[in-house]
Simulated assay, not measured.
Amino acid sequence: MSRRPIAFGCGSDTLSGMLDCADAHGLTGVLIVSGGNEIRAGAFAGTAHLAARLAQEAGVPVFRYDRRGIGDSEGENTGWRGSHDDIAAALAAFRTALPGMRRVIGFGICDAASALMLHGSALDGLVLVNPWTYETDDDAGHTPGALRRRYLAKLTNPRALWQLVSGKVDLRKLWRGLGQAARPNEAPSPLADQLHDSLAQCTRPVAILAAERDRVGERFLDLWPDNDPRVHRHPGSSHSFGEDADSADWLYARLVEATASRH
Results as ranks from 00 to 15, higher is better:
L27I: 00
F107T: 02
Y252I: 03
L98M: 06
C10F: 02
L251P: 06
P5Y: 07
G106K: 00
L19D: 05
F220A: 03
I6R: 05
A41D: 14
E57S: 13
T47H: 07
A48F: 10
G106D: 01
I70Y: 00
G217T: 06
V62Y: 00
W224P: 14
R150T: 08
L31K: 00
Y134E: 01
G217P: 06
S238K: 06
Y252C: 07
L27T: 12
P158D: 10
G108L: 02
L118Q: 02
A200D: 14
D72E: 15
P205L: 01
G46L: 06
E135F: 08
A207M: 12
Y252M: 11
E57A: 15
L147C: 04
G69Q: 07
I208Q: 07
D137W: 14
F8Y: 08
L255A: 01
G100H: 14
R68G: 01
P205V: 03
A51L: 07
Q180D: 11
A182T: 03
M1C: 08
P5K: 02
C202Y: 10
A253Y: 04
V256W: 09
A210V: 14
N130Y: 08
H239L: 08
G179N: 13
G217F: 08
H234T: 05
R204M: 13
S237K: 13
I39G: 09
F94W: 03
L91I: 02
R219P: 00
E38M: 14
G17V: 00
L174N: 09
Y151L: 15
R64C: 08
F241E: 06
F44R: 15
I32N: 00
G36N: 11
D197A: 15
G71V: 11
E186R: 14
P144F: 08
D249N: 13
S121N: 10
Q56M: 03
T259C: 15
I87T: 03
G242K: 05
L152G: 06
G145V: 12
F44M: 12
T47N: 09
Y65L: 05
T156N: 07
N227M: 07
G29I: 04
G79E: 12
I70S: 04
A211C: 09
Q180P: 03
V62N: 01
T136Q: 14
S16W: 03
H232M: 13
G11W: 07
L223D: 02
V33E: 06
L209F: 11
M18D: 10
L19K: 06
D66H: 01
R159G: 15
L27P: 05
A113T: 04
R3K: 08
G71I: 09
V60R: 04
A89R: 00
P225A: 12
D66W: 03
D246L: 14
T143K: 00
E243K: 11
A51G: 04
T14V: 12
M18N: 06
A92L: 11
A181S: 10
D138T: 08
L118V: 03
D222A: 05
A253K: 12
V165P: 00
W132I: 04
P229W: 04
A51K: 04
D23I: 07
V60C: 14
A192E: 03
L195D: 01
C10I: 00
L171Q: 13
V231Y: 10
G9M: 09
L31R: 01
R262L: 05
S198H: 12
I6Q: 06
A51Y: 07
L118Y: 04
R172H: 13
